[in-house]
Design a protein around this nucleic acid. Structure first.
Ligand SMILES: NC(=O)c1ccc[n+]([C@@H]2O[C@H](COP(=O)([O-])OP(=O)(O)OC[C@H]3O[C@@H](n4cnc5c(N)ncnc54)[C@H](O)[C@@H]3O)[C@@H](O)[C@H]2O)c1
Ligand SMILES: NC(=O)c1ccc[n+]([C@@H]2O[C@H](COP(=O)([O-])OP(=O)(O)OC[C@H]3O[C@@H](n4cnc5c(N)ncnc54)[C@H](O)[C@@H]3O)[C@@H](O)[C@H]2O)c1
Lengths: 224, 224
DNA sequence: AGGAGTTTGTGAACGGGAGAACAAAACGAG
DNA sequence: CTCGTTTTGTTCTCCCGTTCACAAACTCCT
């Protein structure tokens, strides 16, 4: 029987980590509509998951519920936000201010979810005259100084696929340790650097696969 | 020993389905640079996965490789495209032509990956004067007729979260059976309708979680 | 105070996916 | 034709995640 690490530094399964933001969003919705307490059943329905899974997920954080009663919405909301690390804002830089970069820069949802866009960078000098969402579009060469100035550790890549790896390399060199990549390219980064990708076309192709099966073999199941 | 279903209709694991598009992308890259044959090792490196996993994934589709030689790039590319169902274009409608909807409409990558945007819809009448990427922005009321005319089965939701469920309901009512949802909301749809979500803020929050852990407990691992 | 009714937290069973390891198959050299 | 080399396809094992089911804990009512 190994002694458990005192308080934090518990090992939360990756699958659970991916769902915590969903629970957080559900709790914020509940709080906004005035709910002060909720059961695991209610919260699970709001988050679109099984209630047993929800309870197990929350149990990794600690015992924040009350048996026979449920969870205090505001309290649990804070605990999850703290666990994720979004009680303060994370500074973020976006590289590649094209179609997608503009949309991201203009997206107001970041701010309320724990992120603050501190700079927009693009390699194309023609872009540098633009102001998007109140921020100057700056030269990619300014990356180092911006990262240093704002202590940025999260970067977003919205450049064409061919440029993605070199942008990632440059980000890593400046000290960025988490990258969100929208370009359809596999990034190679050193250990210790986190990468997540969002690939729109892949999502559509997965839907297409199931769609095709529906027409071939009627009675095929739904998509998760 | 149960007789296997003759040819297609094999049961491909969901995890494999999600990787097939990545392999397809890698094969297209290889083909573009003139490679005609590749080993599982090479292709796996290109796709960013383990070669054993790649081979197992491909084995669900059939035996398309040659032992001692490898895979024919063009042939495998076609087989995967056929399995996914992107040998012909799928008509797609996008609902909600705001920041994100504009970016999606202007994205040229869809076309080459098996999708064709046939209509852009928005509830706001002010938007209806706009032309985006060569398409008129039309009234959401036109959904039925457009879906019927083009035989659309895939819809993309890029509206605010509050509108997402009602848009989804309307889509389902018109016969759409696959939905890609960008709004931060859990959609409830009937069985047989596929839903996938892309939530930017969730991706960033997952990165933030690991980022926070790095600073608390140095030596924590990387993100998958 | 005690019992009935709720709801959490978790142990245990189960299923699916990841990776190692190897036999089977193809090819080329001699 | 035979042997050695290469690389696939598959089997086996392990691990992670999901789900069930239930004891423990709390509230409320009498
Ligand atoms: N637009 C979408 O809806 C969409 C959807 C899915 C994926 N994507 C992917 O997102 C990425 C961006 O898409 P987009 O439509 O905005 O493309 P885009 O061409 O409109 O914009 C790309 C921007 O990146 C800049 N850029 C190029 N090389 C750079 C470099 N080395 N450093 C810094 N900036 C650089 C360009 O100047 C340009 O402004 C692409 O990889 C695309 O495949 C976009
Ligand atoms: N912009 C981003 O980068 C980004 C990032 C992550 C998530 N999102 C999400 O994507 C969605 C769209 O974001 P956005 O920035 O484009 O918002 P937006 O406000 O710019 O655009 C929303 C559009 O949807 C239209 N709309 C509203 N209700 C509608 C309805 N019932 N039917 C049809 N159209 C309707 C509006 O008229 C508007 O044009 C939001 O849910 C947002 O949270 C956006």
């Amino acid at each position: 029987m190994t002694a458990r690490t005192p308080d934090s530094a518990r090992d939360i399964p990756e699958a659970t980590v991916a769902r915590l933001p969903v629970y957080l969003r559900a709790l914020i919705s509940l709080a906004e509509e005035g709910t002060t307490t909720c059961s695991s059943e209610e919260l699970a329905a709001f988050a679109g998951v099984n209630s047993a899974k929800l309870r197990k997920d929350l149990s990794y954080l600690g015992s924040y519920g009350t048996r026979g009663v449920g969870y205090d919405v505001e309290y649990l909301r804070y605990q999850i936000a703290r666990e994720i690390g979004v009680t303060q804002d994370w500074p973020v830089v976006i590289v590649g201010i094209g179609n997608l970069g503009h949309a991201l820069a203009n997206y107001s949802g970041f701010r309320s979810r724990g992120f603050r866009v501190v700079a927009l960078l693009d390699a194309d000098p023609d872009r540098h005259e633009e102001v998007v969402a109140g921020l100057d579009v700056r030269s990619f060469e300014d990356l180092e100084s911006i990262v240093a100035e704002h202590d940025v550790s999260i970067g977003v890549i919205a450049t064409p696929a061919v440029a993605a790896q070199s942008v990632a390399d440059r980000m890593v060199a400046t000290g960025i340790t988490s990258i969100l990549n929208f370009a359809p390219a596999v990034l190679s980064v050193p250990d210790g650097v986190g990468v997540r990708k969002v690939d729109l076309s892949i999502e559509l192709q997965i839907l297409a696969y199931h769609e095709q099966r529906k027409s071939i073999a009627p009675g095929a199941g739904a998509v998760s």
